[in-house]
Simulated scan of single mutants.
Amino acid sequence: MREIVVIGVGAGDPEQVTMQAVAALNRVDVFFVLDKGEVKQELVDLRSEILRRYATSKEYRVVVGRDPERDRTSSAYVEAVDDWRRRRADVCAGMIADELGEDQVGAFLVWGDPSLYDSTLAILDDILARGELAFSVEVIPGISSVSTLAARHRVGLNQVGRPIQITTGRRLAREWPAGVDDVVVMLDAQTAFTEHLDQDADIYWGAYLGTPDEILISGPVREVAAEIEKARAEARDRKGWIMDTYLLRRHADRRD
């Protein structure tokens, strides 16, 4: 039976690739890559660097498929994401069927950790549910952007005895999660932290974590919000894309 390995390769620094991931890389016959276009070509280049460094014990092939465009204008967010994932699944199913032999191992390299805001596992579940292809799946965990963010700022993600919540900018823009003082935010295209300048909270923000272009800013959110917005806009204009993550911390001894 075909085998698919989903390998977490860290937030961007090739040295974040774990020894378990290295062992998995060296079992792979075919690496599948979804091409996002020239704007994010450096992400493809970074994957190539990881393979050059670590996938050294056997011959392998790299198969590239075109990542479908997602409708970002639709007001029906969940439906738009579901449609995009189905079309992604179509592309991935075609690559697996056409390029991976029955006794071979294929792999998808995933930024950060495959379990955290990544669609690869859901896409593979979709393909298997169709009943047209059979393969086993193994998941290799990776160092996430969340853990990298905390390490770069030298902070813990939680306060003693308090929960944390990982959420999206879309949800944070609506409200600060109830009963939570520590909020990690991913997938924030609209700088949702600016909706909470009335909170007595600190922000620990990072962009392009683990890469040479890494940017870190921290401080009281009401004092550094404008600085983050400016840095974010300039970086996005310069590179054409941005990946950022942040922790908002409302101190339990200072909240209302």
Rank of each mutant, 00 (worst) to 15 (best):
M1R: 12
G8R: 10
V9L: 08
G12C: 09
E15G: 12
E15N: 15
Q16E: 15
V17R: 04
M19T: 13
A23H: 13
A23R: 15
V28P: 04
F31Y: 05
G37A: 01
G37V: 07
V39C: 05
S48K: 08
S48D: 12
E49R: 15
I50K: 05
I50G: 03
Y54Q: 11
A55F: 10
T56P: 06
V62T: 06
T73Y: 11
Y77W: 05
A80N: 05
V81T: 07
A89L: 03
A93F: 01
M95L: 15
M95V: 00
I123A: 02
D126W: 10
L128K: 12
L133F: 02
A134I: 06
S136I: 01
G142Y: 04
S147K: 06
A150T: 11
A150Q: 03
R154M: 12
V155E: 03
L157N: 06
N158C: 11
Q159R: 07
G161L: 03
P163H: 07
P163A: 09
I166A: 07
G169K: 11
W176A: 05
P177T: 03
A178V: 08
A178G: 13
A189F: 11
L197F: 08
D198C: 06
D198K: 12
Q199I: 13
D202F: 10
Y204L: 03
Y208C: 06
L209A: 02
P212T: 08
D213A: 12
I215F: 08
I215P: 14
I215W: 13
I215L: 14
P220T: 13
R222I: 04
R222K: 15
V224K: 04
A225G: 11
E227C: 09
E227S: 14
E229I: 14
E229V: 15
K230T: 15
E234W: 00
K239D: 08
G240K: 10
M243L: 15
R250T: 09
H251C: 04
